Simulated scan of single mutants.
Amino acid sequence: MSDPAVRLVAISEEPLSVPDVLASLDDATAGGLVLFVGRVRDHDHGQGVDGLSYSAHPSALQRLTEVCEAVAARHDVTGVAAVHRVGDLAIGDLAVVVATTAGHRGSSFEASRDLIDTLKAEVPIWKHQRFSDGTDEWVGVP
């Protein structure tokens, strides 16, 4: 990671830790910290979801790092962190955690929104949902 604002970037098969993300962004100059936690929900598009799995392309970690660096460059932030889970997840599990810090809350809100939106659009991580009726769906696959 070449940008010092990028503090934590990871793709993990282990459960994600919000305290670890927060600790990576500890900074006395940051007056604002915005955290987004994406969780596995029990429904999607009107269908019940029993569980899901995430798969990542081998380039996903490098691409996630690039996204974090781009967000840091576009916003007046002091810290950026993004972690994404892969493997089998149950309802309620944490799938993604992103956070940014800045001198003021406005910059951190804008950067965190940009970070999650860009991550979802550009990082090659794909979701395979299993529905309650026995059907399934891949999401985000090119």
Rank of each mutant, 00 (worst) to 15 (best):
Q129V: 06
Q62D: 15
V18M: 06
E137R: 15
I91D: 05
V83E: 06
V40D: 03
D26W: 15
R130T: 13
H57I: 06
T78C: 06
D93A: 04
E110L: 13
V21R: 02
D3T: 00
Y54L: 11
H45C: 07
G31S: 08
H43A: 04
I91G: 08
P58V: 08
L64K: 02
G103D: 06
G106M: 05
C68H: 03
V21C: 03
Q62F: 04
V97N: 12
V96T: 06
D93N: 08
M1C: 07
H43K: 05
S132D: 13
R130G: 06
A5Q: 09
C68L: 06
A23V: 00
F131P: 07
K127V: 02
V67H: 10
R74I: 01
C68V: 00
A60D: 02
G92K: 11
V123R: 02
V21N: 01
G92T: 03
H128G: 03
V49D: 07
P142A: 09
S24A: 13
S132K: 14
V139D: 01
Q129E: 12
R41N: 07
V98K: 11
I11R: 00
H57A: 03
A111D: 11
D88H: 15
A72P: 04
H57Q: 06
S132Q: 14
H128I: 00
E69P: 01
E13K: 15
R113F: 13
V34H: 12
M1Y: 03
V80H: 07
V71E: 15
H128L: 02
A102F: 02
L115C: 09
V49S: 02
A28P: 10
E110V: 00
Q47H: 14
A73M: 05
D114K: 14
A28T: 14
L33Q: 12
D114S: 14
V34L: 02
K120Y: 11
E14Y: 08
